[in-house]
C-alpha cells in the first residue's frame, strides 16, 4: 500500500510540469474513479498478479458490437507474455464483462472458474459497484489460480 502511494508520488514528481500533473491527479483522471478506488484497483491487480504469476490486466471501455472478438483482439495486444495473461474487459455501457485467458493461464483458470468470478462481478455491477465487483472478481480468480510452488514473489 505504502509502496503504491510512494510510487505514484514519485512518478508525478519526476515527470515534467509537476504542479500541473499533481493538480490533475488530485481529482482522479477522467473522473471515472476516485483516487481511493484507483488505489484499490491498482493493489488488486498487482497483488493478484504477483500471487499467481499470471498477468492480470483490466480494460474498461466500449467493446463494440462483437464483444468477444473485440476482447480477444485486445488480449492479443495486452502484453508480451500472452499465454500467461488474463484480461478482464468490462464494458459498462453495454453491460458486458468478458474474461479472456491465455492457453497456459486457462489450464489454471478453467472456464468454469472464470464463469464463477464473472457471476460475482456481474452481481456487484448490477448494483452499481464497479470497483468492488472487479476487486472481488480478481480475488476469486487469483484464489482459483493459486500460488505456483516455484514462484518467488517477495
Amino acid at each position: 500500500m505504502t509502496r503504491v502511494l510512494e510510487g505514484t508520488s514519485h512518478d508525478t514528481a519526476t515527470s515534467a510540469g509537476t504542479m500541473a500533473t499533481r493538480a490533475d491527479e488530485a481529482e482522479a483522471p477522467d473522473s471515472i474513479f476516485s483516487y481511493q478506488e484507483l488505489l484499490r484497483l491498482d493493489e488488486a491487480l498487482t497483488m493478484s498478479s504477483r500471487e499467481t504469476g499470471l498477468r492480470f490486466t483490466l480494460y474498461i471501455g466500449d467493446l463494440g458490437p462483437q464483444t468477444r472478438a473485440r476482447a480477444e483482439e485486445l488480449f492479443e495486444r495486452s502484453g508480451s507474455d500472452l499465454p500467461d495473461s488474463v484480461l478482464i474487459a468490462v464494458s459498462p455501457g453495454q453491460r458486458v464483462v468478458e474474461v479472456v485467458t491465455g492457453a497456459a493461464a486457462a489450464r489454471r483458470l478453467p472456464d468454469r472458474a472464470c464463469a464463477l468470478a464473472v457471476l460475482s462481478m456481474t452481481n456487484a455491477f448490477a448494483s452499481g459497484d464497479l470497483v468492488g465487483g472487479i476487486v472481488n472478481g480478481l480475488r476469486q480468480l487469483s484464489d482459483q489460480a493459486g500460488h505456483p510452488r516455484g514462484l518467488r514473489t517477495h
Binding site: 510512494e6 519526476t14 515527470s15 471515472i32 491487480l45 498487482t46 490486466t57 480494460y59 502484453g79 508480451s80
Partner: peptide, 28 residues
C-alpha cells in the same frame, strides 16, 4: 451510458519497486 475514454490497467512489474515512471513493456 458510458462515455469515458477506454482505459487499460495493468499490474506493476515485479522487479521495479514502483520508483520512477513505470517502464513500458510489451505492446500494452
Amino acid at each position: 451510458a458510458w462515455d469515458h475514454e477506454p482505459v487499460w490497467y495493468e499490474p506493476h512489474p515485479v522487479g521495479g519497486g514502483g520508483h520512477g515512471p513505470t517502464e513500458a513493456h510489451g505492446p500494452a
